[in-house]
Design a protein around this nucleic acid. Structure first.
Lengths: 246, 246
DNA sequence: CGTCTATTTGAGCCCCGTCAAAGGCGGTGG
DNA sequence: CCACCGCCTTTGACGGGGCTCAAATAGACG
């Protein structure tokens, strides 16, 4: 039990250290979050962030979630996916309005860190603040690439690009085996993320299968030819900042 | 001359105070940037940010610019517009790679603040740090709305939404008169920003004119019916965070 | 007044959306 | 173990919103 709690802070440290190396003292300070709870949410439910007791910063431990925005008439756009190791709501202390929702794709487990205490800690631990800012900036960079993706690429390029991005992020999170990874998104999710219709997503996936670029079934994705898929998508990984540590 | 320099720091303070009120001491510390230069760039030129001598944070003083990303084959997506009072490159110190370019739409004048000194200042002035973070988060929020816009809205809704956003931002920047504002974007710019073709932008603008929602000619835009235009675009201004000061 | 760029217009077509129905797959309960 | 149910995936036919190609017109600037 204690061991498990300890490993949760370990998750936190690991996520923060994706960009900066923390000092021993930073790590000791983060130990105060040992007692923070691990929460769960079922698939397809919102991680309601509004009007919730003391605001928390969530660190996703298991499962997939997404950020999304709705239009009054029901149209929905997924504006980002969240995989294990990603933070939600880093902005909750600065921006008062939540401009989007966060929904669980699969059942999720997340570490709920009181955001006031986390932000208080950053006052004396600038490297922690920088790590949190870095995560926010990477999210922003991914959003820009999505704008390019949805605005300019064709359907097949768009889907290919999204699949490569998710595969690389999952690989960085350490949850892939060879070129295969769990892939819980439905074709409806892919449609909402790419601005296409589910029907057209279906035909596009079949085209990618026919060309032996991917295998996707039973919630499992295999990239059969990374190089060709990247080429088709005109994929340039630099926006993911996957190796930018200093 | 000195008076002019002083007013430049005034611009900086004003932009920072769009979200938090700075202390007298914060303002005094910002006085160190009095000597920072005002730079100019001609229309349609990049504000090249890479490989440039000491990195700077730019505060746009006059003119319009845009963030954009290119595809190898020449397709271009504008991922955001910058109007007077906006910062460019706040992330330059955290993310080492620049994942996008910044181009001047009109001739621009900007205040070039040495980013190392600005970031050093934030160590002792958390409210300045928070103000910079706030600007970055608003940019991110706008990007999410653009994803919704491009991914889900029809051509006419998309253009209407963009026009309302720009009008409101310009009004907040204090550069509108009644419902009219200078509007230097070409139809090609609008196309690159919305993911449509210039030809279709043209037809869409004509439709908006025909319905007496806007007047647009000679680089001047008038919103003839804000309420109906917002309704058409399903516009909800909260993502702009225009009145969120604490 | 000439040149260059931006805007406008027209005709044709294609990518992707829409509508509808069938088929597969996992879960649940009898 | 099977039957049923709900959701997801797949397939087909058709239609349309927006793209392409091409050319004419209008403004801006020297």
């Amino acid at each position: 039990m204690v061991a498990q709690r300890f490993s949760l802070v370990g998750h936190l440290v690991a996520s923060l250290e994706r960009c900066v190396r923390l000092s021993e003292e930073d790590r000791r300070a983060l130990e105060q979050f040992r007692g923070a709870p691990v929460r769960e949410a079922p698939a397809r439910h919102d991680l309601a962030s509004e009007a919730q007791e003391p605001a928390v910063v969530r660190l996703l431990l298991e499962g997939w979630a997404c950020r999304y925005k709705d239009l009054p008439d029901g149209r929905r756009q997924i504006v980002g996916f969240l995989v294990p190791g990603d933070f939600c709501d880093l902005n909750v202390h600065v921006l008062h309005r939540m401009d989007h929702s966060i929904g669980a794709i699969t059942p999720v487990r997340y570490f709920a860190i009181p955001s006031d205490r986390l932000h208080a800690l950053t006052e004396n631990h600038p490297r922690v603040a920088q790590a949190l800012l870095w995560h926010e900036l990477v999210t922003s960079s991914i959003q820009r690439e999505w704008l390019l993706n949805i605005g300019q690429r064709s359907a097949i390029e768009r889907v290919a690009h999204l699949l490569v991005e998710l595969y690389l992020r999952l690989r960085a999170a350490g949850v892939t085996a060879d070129e295969t990874c769990g892939f819980p998104l439905t074709q409806i999710d892919l449609a909402d993320a790419t601005g296409l219709t589910p029907v057209h997503i279906n035909r596009t996936l079949q085209q990618l299968r026919r060309e032996r670029l991917i295998a996707l079934s039973h919630r499992e994705l295999t990239i059969l030819d990374v190089a060709r898929l990247k080429q088709l998508a005109m994929f340039d990984a630099s926006y993911l900042q996957l190796d930018s540590c200093d």
